[in-house]
Design a protein around this nucleic acid. Structure first.
Lengths: 335, 335
DNA sequence: ATGAAAGCGCTAACAC
DNA sequence: GTGTTAGCGCTTTCAT
């Protein structure tokens, strides 16, 4: 690795002269600057990142902790975060909590030693279930900024990026109601998560507000351990006259569509389906699934922006929560 | 941030004493060690990562560059890499090349300044098409080790993790032949990639070796710009008597299955389909898609192991190529 | 216009 | 058993 010292020796000047020259200091003569820069380029000199960080106490690196890369939502958020961070001159260190509290604690702990300037994170399922926040507060107390996205925690004082989960589910349910649906079932594999509960509440609220809707709400909660296909099969068996399905997670909408078609439901004539899925599943559906689009890319991007803003201001300002708009995109599975 | 200096001042000893005590040096008295460790724990002391790295010239961080996080194969590889790296005490800095040569060059350049101890990477599509390798050689020349996985380049002298792409496709084609299939079509959206070419060659070889197979091979190459569903529709229109489909990429097998069912093919009686897809798509298929399992998790894990081995040995040994076994998993879309 | 020296936080060879 | 010192690569204040 080429260092300032090497350049200095070769040019018979001091290290500090080289440093200043490379930083275009007005103290240094034009010709010297020229000579230094030429050699630096020629030798492909790169300022050592660690030395820079040690000196400046800034790493230009963000810690990103997501619950699951195999979940397309988080993969896309990660993608957006990486894009935007790169654009802003930041690297990202990625950790996957695997929905586990212990891994989340561990990652936070390990990266809080000057490895990163701040964290962008979405809370693990286990953490939300157990409602643990000390490991996060500890980070905050150390003065490391944190942006929470999607799965947040109201008790924590930090910047957040969310969508209007309640409103999105409410609106989707309203749409089904307006289609004249009389037996709308909600299916969710995220009932234990903050976002899942909000979405369910949106669904319940919409039904409740509709005086002409007589049916009891039906919430089908699937866990990771369950066989999703079996649960969906059972849904159709035990709700013979279902005419609307709202899936508030990534995959169950697609599965419901497949199963419904197989059972001979005519879609969307007899049955409407709306999912929370990403566009990536559309290629696997026919008719195309109507979805609530979360604008995942915007969520990731906004998280980085919030973080950079926070890092760039010395004075502690109020924490902000950005809400990304969702959009109900009607396709082939709704009227 | 708590430093050795803080501890030293509070305890009225020197910084080096504190350092040695925390590292259990035999030079230091038992009681001193005790006192130091207690205070360190109490103050939640964490050794500064940057100082450590600067001193030791090791970062305990790996640079991971993948072409596309939204591709489930790479997401899973990333997951495995993160898991194994964490297990071995390494962090990973993730960059997404987005299949672009320029981003790949950029990431490599930016992280070659002492940010990472080595790189684990899979080559971008554009890079493979243009057959550029200078940016990679430059990294290698600097003495930074690199492990290439999946999409490798034969000209580069470094460790590699691959699967037997040729053999896997060959074996799958053989299976279709043994089923008595007489009109087997290959579909691929990765014809431009090293792995795609190898798989196609495996298919061609198997057909060629079978004297009783009279049909000309049919290779349908899809690009990102094409509408996959349209191409698949066209496949069935222009190959009326197709009775076997080998999809060598992630998604086209699933799409082919859906389209075939819609067109009324009885599967697997009249038509067999084998995909290279990950298990994650199975929930969307009925009957379940038969696939070539790539053991993606093992690929990621092996990459990290190779890297750590390389980092742990001073002497330059021969570069090694690890081949991960694939497995043909027969499910509902084959006889 | 250039250089010497200090210091970021840490380790380790070398005193005492 | 503990302290002093130098040095990792860099920036920056303060001399010259």
């Amino acid at each position: 690795m080429v260092t300032l010292k090497h350049l200095a020796e070769q040019l018979n000047v001091s290290v500090s002269t080289v440093s200043k020259a490379l930083n275009d200091s007005p103290e240094i003569g034009k010709d010297t600057i020229q000579r230094v820069k030429e050699l630096a380029k020629h030798l492909n000199y790169q300022p050592n990142k660690m030395a820079l960080s040690l000196k400046s106490n800034k790493t230009n690196t963000l810690g990103v902790i997501i619950p699951d890369v195999l979940n397309h939502f988080f993969a896309k958020a990660l993608y957006a975060i990486e894009m935007e961070a790169t654009k802003q001159g930041y690297n990202i260190i990625t950790c996957v909590s695997n929905e586990l509290l212990s891994k989340e604690e561990n990652s936070l702990q390990l990266l809080s030693n000057g490895s990163v300037d701040g964290f962008i994170m979405s809370i693990a399922e286990e953490t939300q279930k157990k409602n643990k926040t000390e490991h996060i507060s500890r980070v905050l107390d150390r003065g490391l900024p944190m942006v929470l996205f999607d799965r947040v925690c109201d008790d924590l004082e930090c910047d957040k990026v969310i969508i209007d989960d309640f409103g999105a589910a409410y609106e989707a349910t309203k749409h089904l109601l307006n289609e004249g649906r009389k037996h709308i079932v909600l299916i969710s594999d995220i009932e234990k998560l903050s976002v899942g509960k909000l979405r369910t509440n949106g669904y319940l609220k919409a039904l409740q507000e509709d005086a002409s809707y007589k049916q009891e709400p039906v919430v089908i909660s699937v866990t990771k351990a369950d066989d999703l296909e079996e649960v969906v099969d059972h849904l159709f068996d035990s709700n013979k006259n279902v005419d609307g399905i709202l899936s508030v997670d990534n995959t169950s909408g697609v599965v419901a569509l497949h199963k419904a078609l197989k059972k001979g439901y005519s879609i969307p004539e007899k049955l409407s389906i709306i999912g929370f899925s990403d566009e990536n599943v559309l290629v696997f559906t026919e008719p195309k699934l109507s979805t609530i689009s979360q604008h995942t890319f915007d969520i990731g991007k906004a998280s980085v922006k919030l973080m950079i803003d926070r890092l760039n201001q010395k004075s502690k300002t109020e924490h902000v929560t950005t809400t990304i708009k969702t959009k109900l995109v009607l396709r082939g599975t709704t009227k």
